[in-house]
Amino acid sequence: MFPTELLRDAGALLDDLKQRGLKIATAESCTGGLLMGLLTEIAGSSAVVERGFITYSNQAKSQMLGVDAGLIERLGAVSEEVARAMAEGALGAAPVDLAVSVTGIAGPDGGTPQKPVGLVYLAAAMRGGATLVRDCRFGDIGRTQIRLATLAEALSLARGAMSV
């Protein structure tokens, strides 16, 4: 279902989490649960995967993760600040040590000159640690390719947050 390299990287993240006795949650918008799907594609993932929040709508981001509706209204759902709030909200809403969030514009519609198709913000928050945020500008490479590229970045960011 997923490319081999994504499965390899997901397995490495899960191994790191297991070795450290940590749990993970995801908060996803433009990936619509693909990150959780990727993680749970790996046998034994239940040892470290706690839950996923699919918050496709702005209302869901506010209701499920506590993202301030005013923040979304002011900056838009696709912003560094909302990605950060999503990850930190997931961390607060679940008994986990690490939360990874994704919000972006996968297309083919929805882009603007300021926020084009292919713009994705990701965040990884560690309990008691820092929240890392990354913006990616994949370009209009197609919806599926944007979402798959986002998964690779999310895995990388999660591993980075664990090493800070």
Rank of each mutant, 00 (worst) to 15 (best):
T26L: 08
A69H: 02
A149K: 12
L119K: 15
G37W: 04
R143F: 01
P3A: 01
G52E: 13
V133R: 02
L65I: 05
S45Q: 09
G37T: 05
S57C: 12
D109I: 09
K23P: 00
T112Q: 13
G76L: 01
M162D: 09
V49H: 01
T150D: 02
I54M: 15
G32Q: 05
A77L: 11
A124Q: 07
A83P: 00
R20I: 01
L6F: 01
V102G: 05
Y121Q: 02
D135R: 10
L39A: 06
D68T: 12
T144C: 13
E41I: 12
F53T: 10
E81P: 00
E5Q: 14
L14Y: 03
A158S: 07
G70I: 00
L91C: 07
S101C: 14
T55K: 09
L34F: 01
Q145R: 14
P113H: 08
S101L: 15
T131I: 09
A161C: 11
G11K: 02
M162A: 07
L35M: 09
R8G: 00
M1Y: 06
R127L: 12
T131P: 07
A25W: 09
L39W: 03
T26Y: 04
L34E: 03
D16N: 03
I141M: 15
T112N: 12
G128T: 10
D135L: 03
S45Y: 11
V133G: 01
C30V: 08
N58P: 03
T26N: 04
T150W: 05
L157W: 13
G11D: 06
R84E: 03
L7K: 15
S45G: 10
L39K: 05
F2S: 01
G139M: 10
V82Q: 02
D15Y: 10
L91Q: 02
Q63Y: 06
E88C: 09
G76V: 00
K18T: 01
V133I: 06
I105M: 14
